[in-house]
Write a protein that binds this DNA or RNA. Structure first.
Lengths: 203, 203
DNA sequence: TGTACATCAGTGAACGCGCGTTCACTGATGTAC
DNA sequence: TGTACATCAGTGAACGCGCGTTCACTGATGTAC
């Protein structure tokens, strides 16, 4: 072999990291296989030694991106107790930083509407990756059972993703910030102060 | 003139309606100018007698789509009192029907992540269209002042759009329905039962 | 009223371009002997 | 130890394709006289 096994694995990882970043930054259509390889100082032909095609790369990129973000969110909240952790998580997800840097952020908030339109064979893998994402963050959700925490996740995360998307769609920076801070206040109040899914706190 | 002024206006409107529908269905990249014209029984060349280019069409399509949806939502809630109207609106927005038919639904929920990446010259016009959308639906929002109602809109709508996007990304129909019904219950409880933005109900 | 002309929505070939993918090839290194 | 060969990551020309846009042209109808 010309290159060692470790070399190949390392190149593959770099391609994946670049793809995960660029897809989130520019969308999956605006980034070509050649663009990604050029970013690594390689040419497009070699790409097919690492991935079956662009579609396979996209699926792995989404998996990679979601893993990176759930790892980061877990790390940021690792030493905090439950309510603090959730408040911190919401603060991070709905931060100016996250709004300005989709390339390092949640893949669902960056690519959601186009992922929803991919053919079923892709969406299956993507849905699994989203399930793992939820699994990783489940312990940070409010609720007494996994089922309650799961239900909370599935309202909170899509909702926050929608608000982030709205903030990013704005042209006026002040409007973007208002959307973010309004959403932060809302979700912190609704998910940190009291259980969100079950209904018994309404007298 | 070969064709009457009314003819031209009618063709333009049909192009716009088709574009608004197909963009929402397939995304803006997956629909070509030729596709849209073919749908009208026309050829691609004539397109440029009606629009400056695809980008201009996209902007007008988003405006058209948002207007159609706000008109429909206003119509559906026209004869209802405030809390009923809001509950109905949330029920419509987070319905199975809306999930299954992005082509007739909210353009922000269908195209949000790609709209957020368009060049600024587009996003300006799109942001204005989103402002008009909000304006049209403001009276249905909870709150005592327009500012409160506006703040509620800017949490509620992006959040619902995110949940719709999540439901559409799922492959399993039951999971999609659960996401929708969970979101419906949450938003109805949080926005219909009590003021959502101001904080004084927390004793 | 009839005739000549202007208008312009719509046609379809052509443009340059970038895409995803394929493939014959290169050449450094591991392996077999 | 040296030599011949196999491996395969990476190269870059080439493929077919579809895109947005341009443009010379058509031809039905409105307008001027």
């Amino acid at each position: 072999m010309r290159y060692s096994v470790e070399h190949k694995a390392a190149v593959r990882k770099r391609i994946l990291d670049t793809a995960a970043r660029e897809f989130r930054r520019k969308g999956t259509n605006a980034v070509s296989v050649a663009d990604i390889m050029r970013d690594e100082g390689l040419t497009h032909g070699g790409f097919y030694r690492h991935f079956k095609g662009k579609e396979a790369l996209l699926i792995e990129s989404v998996e990679t991106a979601l893993r990176q973000v759930s790892d980061q969110l877990r790390k940021e909240t690792a030493n905090l107790n439950r309510p603090q952790a959730l408040e911190t998580l919401i603060g991070f997800y709905l931060s100016e930083e996250h709004m300005k840097h989709p390339e390092r952020g949640c893949a669902f908030a960056a690519l959601g509407t186009e992922l929803a339109r991919y053919p079923k064979r892709c969406r299956g893998a993507i849905a699994l990756a989203l399930d793992r994402y939820r699994e990783q963050l489940l312990s940070l959700m409010p609720g007494r059972t996994d089922s309650e925490r799961g239900a909370n996740f599935e309202v909170l995360f899509p909702s926050m993703a929608g608000c982030l998307m709205a903030a990013r769609a704005q042209v006026d920076a002040r409007r973007s910030s208002e959307i973010l801070s309004g959403a932060r206040a809302f979700f912190i109040r609704r998910f940190c102060a009291e259980p969100a899914v079950s209904g018994q706190e309404e007298a």
